[in-house]
Simulated assay, not measured.
Amino acid sequence: MTVRAALFDLDGTLVDSLGDITDAVNHMLASFGRPSLAAPSVRQLVGKGARDLVRRALGTGSQDDITRALDLFVAYNSNHIADKSALYPGAWEALHQLAESGIRMAVISNKNEALCRLVMEALGIVRQFEIICGGDTFSEMKPSPLPLLRVVERLGVAPHEAVMIGDSINDVQAGQRAGVTTIGCAWGYGGEKELTGADHRAVSFRGVTAILLKGSA
């Protein structure tokens, strides 16, 4: 395996953003007079984009309600993008090591692209990535292979020369469908069961870099 590009998921992979996402969800729910949700409950809703997140958190409501809920969520999250969010241990060092090794990097998230850029800027990693894509960047989001295929095309690498690194079944399935090798991150939000189909499994960023750098040698 020759690795020329690393494609990272964001929430639950590079960034632990659950606290800020939970706060934004509960701000939205309070506006509708709904009870708040604990972080473990919100964690189960993360992964398929903001609209799906607020729809499931709201439980019931018209399309107008969901649109209003989405606006409330995005506005609050934008204004509190990194109150509690932080890089996972070893992420900063791994990104610098990969950059020094000549591996090109992109973020492919189902989070809104604008929110991706905001949190990455706040945490000081936005300049490490050539491409940043969110769930609203393309016509489809993960687990569709489309975002991965578009990104590797833009990077000028073949799918078999790229690796998708993520914590959920969306990342694993998108990689499989795109012909991209996958690394499942055991520290994220998806849980072990969602990573069973990954080509590799890592319990730390040291493990991720070991796999990638071995493949780039």
Rank of each mutant, 00 (worst) to 15 (best):
A162R: 09
R43F: 05
E192S: 13
R4D: 07
R4M: 04
Y76S: 09
T181Y: 01
A210W: 02
A114N: 08
A38L: 13
L95R: 05
A6F: 11
S78Q: 15
V46M: 08
V126W: 05
T182D: 10
S101G: 00
E194V: 01
D20C: 11
D64V: 12
V126L: 09
S204V: 05
S139M: 10
A198C: 14
D65G: 07
V15A: 02
G207F: 02
I165L: 12
G175Q: 07
V180D: 10
I183W: 10
L72Q: 14
G207T: 04
A38Q: 15
S41Y: 13
I81F: 12
G215A: 12
V54Y: 04
A69Q: 00
Y76A: 06
R104T: 00
R154T: 02
Q97F: 01
Y189S: 02
D64N: 10
E153G: 05
T181Q: 14
A5V: 02
M141N: 11
G59V: 11
A202I: 02
A50G: 07
P40N: 11
S109E: 12
I108G: 05
Q63G: 00
P40Y: 06
L37C: 02
A86K: 15
V3R: 03
L58F: 00
R34S: 06
D52F: 14
K142A: 03
L53P: 04
R201I: 15
K193Y: 02
D16R: 03
A86I: 11
E194M: 08
A162S: 13
L29D: 03
A30L: 13
E194D: 13
H200K: 12
G156R: 05
R51Q: 14
N77V: 01
G47Y: 03
R127E: 14
E194P: 02
V119W: 00
K48F: 13
G12T: 03
L149T: 06
H200Q: 04
E194K: 00
T60C: 04
G124T: 05
A30N: 08
L7F: 10
G188F: 04
T67D: 15
D65W: 01
A186H: 10
T2P: 09
A30M: 13
E121F: 00
I131K: 01
A186K: 11
G166C: 12
A122V: 11
S41I: 10
F138K: 09
D136F: 08
K84G: 04
M141G: 05
H200F: 15
L70N: 07
A30P: 06
A106Y: 03
I81E: 08
A5P: 06
N26L: 00
A186V: 11
L115T: 00
T209Q: 07
F205R: 03
G207E: 15
Q44C: 07
D171I: 06
N110V: 03
L98E: 05
T60P: 01
I125V: 14
V126Y: 01
R127T: 04
D52G: 00
D20W: 03
V180F: 07
V163I: 14
T182G: 06
E93T: 13
G59T: 06
P145Q: 06
R43E: 10
P147R: 12
V15L: 10
P35L: 09
R55S: 14
V54P: 08
L45C: 11
H27S: 09
L213A: 04
